[in-house]
Design a protein around this nucleic acid. Structure first.
Lengths: 237, 237
DNA sequence: TAACACATTCTTGTATACAAGATTGCAACC
DNA sequence: GGTTGCAATCTTGTATACAAGAATGTGTTA
């Protein structure tokens, strides 16, 4: 649905700023601890403070930034307890999705489509690097969406966004990529065989692996990656 | 925790307006379909448009109002599919909470406290009417909180808020109050007996009952109740 | 009466002005 | 050097001004 039918309003300035800032965070151009003021952003993005504030408050409610009363804004620090809890909640939702999918009248088309990706006939069709990361994310999101509860899908999407930053630091080791293909394939097989219990167990184990990998992350690691990114695409803030 | 220790900032105007509007919605002073402008609210609450907008956008993201481009704001219509999905998600979360509670090292104190309320030694200690409604809400919220995942608790709280409007129209028939006491007591007994499966099943059935009761709700019913409220406390918008 | 044209009013979205207070830099002093 | 006092600057929170366009009411015409 590109450019959906209702052109009630062009994308507002506030939306653009929101998107831009969120991308800055995901791309490590803004990292935890970075401080800035509303005027900084407004100047950089050629806007006034009003839409900037709107975007920032949205990001604040979603957990990405903190506002310090009369002392500027700050990219929120990593909170490892929170990350654990978000993973935990993700597991709860995705397990529930497994059961819901198996209770559907007929298997959703997404199952076949995903199976084509993760059970490729020719192993050479496998993707690499950052593509796998994006594919992995959409695997989980599409499975939850296939369960048919939009509210659940939205909550899950918000969690996925929130965890993207730390997950970007994983997904480097090739053995994990191999394992991801294998585990996704097994989950899909269990779903197609209408075995929700097995699918849920395999999904739990799969996510726990990711959760474990993320535990080693530190602010230093983020700084490193941020530096690498900056060197590759210079001229940014 | 009244007036928590960090007086970093007095409650902002935007916060006050947000709370006031949310209460207006919960108390049926604003009902689905009602239209108004930012200036209306600003004048009524003696503020400027800026904090009003902030509050409104927050309410919009939480699903309570819609902004119509250059045509004012509107209390969001009831969406029965969404209500179904929210109930469904609530069941998912509360079932998960049952299992989490039983996996804790030792039973949380909340269990005993809740048991004192819902398994009262003397049946005469039972609460009535709107008190039961509030107690029921906190029963569910506190159980989820007892599971120990703050992120889950927050998501659940948001869902609870969102469903409060329709749940207020339930909880009138005395037989439902009796049943609520019985069902809550049974859930707590199952938890104390460390039987998560049974607790989850009973919780599911309990919530489904509420979900069914809510299905009969219509906009007309809300209008009626709104009129009653207005008559009782006149002088409001 | 019904329908159309036009002008007025109203609405949001954005930009800017102002207020209260936090932060910071610097000079003076021990 | 280390600390204190103070003023200049910066910051958010709120109020207001303006712009583009939607909604509405009114007068006119048939």
């Amino acid at each position: 649905m590109a450019e959906s039918g209702a052109p009630t309003q062009r994308e507002s300035m506030a939306d653009r700023i929101y998107q831009a800032l969120k991308e800055d965070i995901f791309e490590f151009r803004l990292i935890p601890g970075d401080k800035f003021s509303e005027s900084d952003i407004a100047q950089r993005l050629s806007a006034s403070r009003t839409p900037v504030r709107e975007a920032l408050y949205r990001l604040e409610r979603e957990g990405y930034v903190d506002v310090l009363f009369r002392s500027g804004w700050q990219i929120r620090q990593l909170d490892f307890k929170q990350i654990e809890e978000l993973y935990d909640l993700r597991i709860t939702l995705e397990r529930a999705a497994m059961h819901k999918i198996c209770r559907l009248d007929k298997p959703p088309p997404a199952l076949r489509l995903l199976n084509d990706i993760w059970n490729p006939d020719a192993p050479s069709e496998r993707a690499f690097g950052s593509t796998v990361r994006a594919l992995d994310e959409s695997f989980h999101c599409e499975l939850v969406a296939a369960a048919g509860n939009d509210e659940m899908t939205q909550v899950h999407q918000r969690i996925t966004d929130r965890l993207r930053i730390v997950r970007r630091l994983d997904f480097t080791r090739p053995d994990r990529i191999d394992a991801t293909y294998r585990e996704h394939a097994e989950i899909l097989q269990a779903l197609i065989a209408n075995n929700p219990g097995e699918a849920a167990e395999k999904m739990t184990a799969h996510i726990r692996t990711s959760q474990e990998a993320v535990k080693g992350i530190s602010l230093e690691r983020i700084r490193e990656v941020s530096q690498q990114h900056r060197r590759r695409e210079p001229g940014c803030p």
